[in-house]
């Protein structure tokens, strides 16, 4: 139960920071931004709730949250029009910027370990990240062409 309360309180607070980001960075209006963040928060809490149900609590939260959000915005959901309209007022970046702020604030704990690594891992890590991005993008490019999607 503590975990549920903890998670929900963090979600509420971080959603408010997203709201602030949306106001500052993307000139969002107060009311529409607040409503948009509220709907995103509600779907998030509901998705998290589903992942905590008995039998499902061995599965990954990310799957349920993603599926619920896709469903809520798809034509299958009777309220999808309203949900898409309200949440589109929140920019993706308004959620991503605070996320990366927390990532930055957490990075210090890994820096001590990072300093102990051999220099060799650095070029290798750059190549690993570049590889997954570039190869997927190149394959996607030719597949899209072949499919006639672009």
């Amino acid at each position: 139960m503590t975990k549920v309360i903890d998670t929900c309180s963090i979600l509420v607070l971080t959603a408010l920071i997203c709201f602030a980001a949306n106001m500052v960075g993307y000139k969002g209006e107060l009311q529409t931004s607040l409503l948009g963040v509220g709907v995103i928060l509600a779907i998030g809490v509901l998705g998290f709730g589903i992942s905590q149900l008995p039998l499902l609590n061995k599965t990954y939260t990310i799957i349920w949250v993603s599926l619920l959000a896709i469903f809520a915005s798809s034509p299958l959901c009777p309220w999808s029009g309203w949900i898409v309209a309200t949440t589109s007022k929140i920019q993706f970046m308004a959620v991503a910027t605070p996320l990366l702020a927390y990532a930055g604030l957490a990075v210090g704990k890994d820096l001590a370990m990072f300093k102990k690594l051999s220099w060799r891992i650095i070029p290798v890590a750059l190549a690993v990240c570049a590889g997954t991005f570039l190869f997927a993008a190149i394959i996607a490019h030719f597949a899209l062409k072949w499919e006639g999607a672009i």
């Binding site: 998705g47 993603s66 959000a69 949440t87 959620v95 927390y102």
Partner: peptide, 19 residues
């Protein structure tokens, strides 16, 4: 907090997929 907040990012992302 980062891993919890990921939920909000995934919701926003998922909402972009449906339509």
């Amino acid at each position: 907090v980062l891993s919890t907040m990921m939920i909000l990012l995934l919701v926003k992302l998922g909402l972009g997929i449906g339509p």
